[in-house]
Design a protein around this nucleic acid. Structure first.
Length: 418
RNA sequence: GGAGGAGUCGCCUAGUGGUCCAUGGCAGCGGCCUGCUAAGCCGCGCCCCGAUUUUCGGGGCUCGUGGGUUCGAAUCCCACCUCCUCCGCCA
């Protein structure tokens, strides 16, 4: 959410960014409705003032008459106010966040800017296999029974891969804990306000699983429960920034992606993620610093796994509505013969905090909205694709990355243990 | 799932239809005062309007949320949310 004051004072910029994010918003209408609302408020405030004065006087029949009149008039005006407010908010909540000046304008993923590349793309002296082929060969992924039991995009991880999956999550989790990030396990069942607050709603409603309860949804990422953790609270500048690492299951309907990545464990309805979240003071420079810190954490993970990756600065057309700046990290996946997204690192400025009402008292005693940031540490099973495919050997076996060997207790797949 | 109790400003707390434009304390921040420190005093949320527009004046809102009753609601009624106690079921 942007403040209406900001929108009013920077309307051309807001319109330009919205367009850049491929979003249609009628700022004229928004401001016109807001003007109407203000005028109504003045009228209502005047009437309420009169009512208050009456209520202070000694009670008489005449007073009752006057009071009734005011009451009826107020009722009409308040109804009108609510109607206009609803209309205004409907537009307001669809205005996306503005972006940092270093963010490139662009239409879609083709206009993202590659800013870094790490590692050597492996050269195989054989035709590399995909994780799908290897997964079935060693009976460590079962797609057939996955879809039988769970439906489209259903899967089972088995044997060594089930162990590797847990090890990877645990290893990444521990790494962040060692860096001072507060460990969380987060609920995956969340109320609607968290999804609206994080900017999932209204744009991504079709992406979200709705449970049969009145106000219960499945979270698409721990960003949602963790960022909402301090909703409606007032923090102190002394406790900021607060850094969290959370592990949670993630659920996505992938409603807009039916034809995409239909095979394998790249795009799933259900997966696990270790997520980094930071609640920060309202300071753009500090936010940039923390954003780089998150990025460094993510890159360390891929460096220690010894898997090549690249980092993209996302253009407006490939950014989410709440984001002011975003990096994607993509790991090399030989089976695709290309890069696959494994982390998404964003500064939201106070866009989410305004919707979630998370504030803090600054040094000067002023109450401000916090800034929020989040970045994937590791998504799994997707990250397993990069491990399986980069570590495959000529005979089809898969080496286990050195850093994970002590956790899983074997050095290659098949291990002969299951 | 059933029965009972509770939710007031960052935290604690007073308040059971008009004397509440919500009491008192604590913490934090700013200011005043001041050899130093401490104490003391004043202020402290959100929205709107006006002007002599980093400030001042006026009004409104804010007692878990949303409705309702009433001339008037923190207070009465209804629904919902959350927490506590007990019963039932249960990994």
């Amino acid at each position: 959410m942007l403040s209406l004051k900001y929108i009013r004072e920077n309307r051309e910029w807001v319109e330009k960014v919205a367009k850049g994010k491929n979003i249609e918003v009628d700022i004229d209408k928004l401001l016109e409705l807001d003007d109407r609302l203000k005028k109504l408020q003045v009228k209502i405030d005047k009437l309420r003032h009169e009512r208050k004065l009456l209520a202070k006087q000694k009670f008489t029949e005449g007073l009752r008459e006057k009071g009734k009149k005011i009451k009826e008039e107020l009722k009409k005006l308040e109804a009108e106010y609510e109607e206009v407010k609803k209309e205004r908010d409907e537009i307001w909540k669809r205005v996306p966040n503005v972006v940092y000046k270093e963010v490139p304008f662009g239409k879609d993923e083709n206009d993202n800017v590659e800013i870094k590349r790490w590692g050597e793309i492996p050269k195989f002296d054989f035709k590399p296999r995909s994780h799908i082929e290897l997964g079935e060969r060693w009976d460590i992924i079962d797609f057939k029974r996955g879809s039988k039991v769970s439906g489209f995009r259903g899967y089972f991880l088995k044997k060594e891969l089930a162990v590797l999956h847990m090890a990877l999550l645990w290893w990444a989790f521990q790494k962040l804990v060692a860096k001072g990030y507060t460990p969380f396990t987060a609920p995956a069942i969340v109320k609607g306000f968290t999804l609206f607050g994080c900017g999932q709603f209204p744009w991504g409603e079709r992406e979200t699983y709705v449970l049969n309860d009145k106000d219960a949804y499945l979270a698409g990422t721990a960003e949602q429960p963790i960022t909402s953790y301090y909703a409606n609270e007032v923090l102190s500048w002394k406790e900021l920034p607060k850094k969290f690492v959370a592990i949670s299951p993630c659920f996505r309907r992938e409603a807009g992606a039916h034809g995409k990545d239909t095979r394998g464990i790249y795009r799933l309805h259900e997966f696990w993620k270790v997520e980094q979240v930071i609640i920060a003071p309202a300071d753009d420079e500090k936010a940039r610093e923390l954003h780089e810190e998150l990025q460094k954490n993510t890159e360390e993970i891929w460096q220690e796994l010894k898997i090549p990756y690249r980092v993209l600065l996302m253009c407006t057309g490939d950014m989410g509505e709440p984001q002011a700046k975003k990096y994607d990290t993509e790991a090399w996946m030989p089976g695709r013969g290309g890069w696959g997204e494994v982390a998404s690192n964003s500064i939201m400025t106070d866009f989410q905090a305004r919707r979630l009402n998370i504030r803090y008292k600054d040094k000067d005693g002023k109450t401000k909205f916090v800034y929020t940031l989040n970045d994937t540490a590791v998504p799994s099973p997707r990250a397993l694709i990069a491990i399986i495919e980069n570590y495959q050997q000529k005979d089809g076996s898969i080496k286990v990355p050195e850093v994970l060997q002590p956790l899983v207790g074997f050095g290659k797949i098949p291990s002969g243990r299951f």
